[in-house]
């Protein structure tokens, strides 16, 4: 699941970078820093990426997930800091929503 989500986030990041004319050096993987020092995105682009991931999750798994989080912009504990942490967070929220939907 987490690997699927990582690939989904990588694809969404590439789409967003292309749309916004941002050049990506090298490959993207779970360790790629999304924002903050050495990060790919500014805060507006991060918002767009999170929304794109929410919509991709909805299309693939047919469940609405809001990836909203209190620690969104924290450098140390934000679930959005890398592609890997975002994938893990998305997996957790998706599981919660699916459980809620079936129960």
């Amino acid at each position: 699941m987490s690997e699927d989500l990582t690939q989904m986030i990588i694809a969404a990041t590439r789409d967003l970078a292309a749309e916004q004319g941002v050049e990506i050096d090298g490959t993207l993987d779970a360790n790629t820093r999304l924002f903050g020092e050495g990060g790919l995105l500014d805060s507006m682009a991060l918002v767009s990426l999170v929304i794109a991931v929410e919509q991709a999750l909805e299309e693939k798994y047919e469940v609405g997930v809001a990836l909203a989080d209190e620690k969104a912009l924290s450098q140390r504990s934000s679930p959005y800091r890398t592609i890997g942490t975002l994938a893990a967070y998305a997996a957790q929220e998706l599981a919660t929503r699916r459980k809620g939907k079936s129960g």
């Binding site: 919509q55 909805e58 047919e62 609405g64 997930v65 809001a66 809620g100």
Partner: peptide
């Protein structure tokens, strides 16, 4: 109701 709103927006999209 967040869940209800999410479902509404999903069907709207």
């Amino acid at each position: 109701d967040e869940a209800g709103a999410m479902a509404l927006f999903a069907s709207l999209r």
